[in-house]
Design a binder for these strands. Structure first.
Length: 217
DNA sequence: CGCCAGGTTGTTG
DNA sequence: CAACAACATGGC
């Protein structure tokens, strides 16, 4: 008997406790600056450890670049050098400025007030914002109810016997969403718990055949 | 030294 | 549509 997604959530919450994500530099949730910091972090952490992102975020903050207009205006080369420790720095400098420019046309408030699917389609227009990055922004910065799928989420659910974990992003995300209460806090905690559990048990191959925490009963 | 990291894009079959 | 290369630094 396999655990339902809801049971997975509750068991992980019991095991790890509330994660209280997204990790912000100055623990200032709900502010306008926090929204942009979340989006910048989401782009910087693409295929990159969060520890590398932390080598860069304070630098950007000190340079006054954690606001859309400033980030959009700074010279490309300057930005790429500042974010070098985060890896793929030329690519990410471009992605960050694409997103910053995008915000001048679609402010956070607009994206928050329209429907989740509508905001999602707009975010995906930005070169450098794919499905997971878009969903992290939607869920943690804009308050939309989406289920974020990352590599850990796939590995964990696959290990639990869910062959749906091999489906395309949207199919898998929607399939999980349909089995959860669409509560913002649950969805935020769920993804945070996926990362906590993934880092602990699904980082290096071979991945466990049987999950060390999640057992059916 | 090799593998991995809270992916995304562009190219090719 | 699936598979693949490229991006690239830092930690272990």
């Amino acid at each position: 008997m396999v655990l339902s997604p809801s049971q997975v959530y509750h068991q992980l919450l019991e095991h790890y406790g509330p994660q209280d994500w997204w990790p912000l530099l100055h623990n200032q949730r709900g502010t306008l600056g926090a929204q942009f910091e979340i989006a910048v972090g989401a782009i910087l952490t693409q295929n990159t450890s969060w520890s590398n992102v932390l080598l860069v975020l304070p630098t950007l903050a000190e340079a006054g670049l954690l606001e859309p207009a400033a980030l959009a205006a700074v010279e490309r080369k300057t930005l790429s050098e500042l974010i070098r420790p985060a890896g793929s720095f030329n690519q990410k400098a471009r992605y960050l400025q694409n997103f910053a420019a995008f915000l001048s046309q679609h402010p956070f408030d607009d994206l928050s007030n329209q429907s989740g699917p509508s905001a999602r389609l707009k975010l995906l227009q930005v070169t450098g914002v794919g499905p997971e990055t878009a969903d992290c922004i939607l869920l943690y910065a804009l308050g939309h109810r989406v289920f974020v799928v990352d590599a850990y989420t796939r590995r964990i659910f696959f290990a639990l016997g869910y062959k749906e974990a091999t489906q395309g992003y949207t199919a898998f995300s929607n399939w999980i969403s349909a089995q959860l209460k669409p509560e913002i806090n649950l969805l935020q905690e769920f993804h945070a718990l996926m990362v906590a559990h993934g880092k602990t048990n699904y980082s290096k191959k071979p991945y466990p055949m049987l999950d060390p925490v999640l057992r059916s009963r």
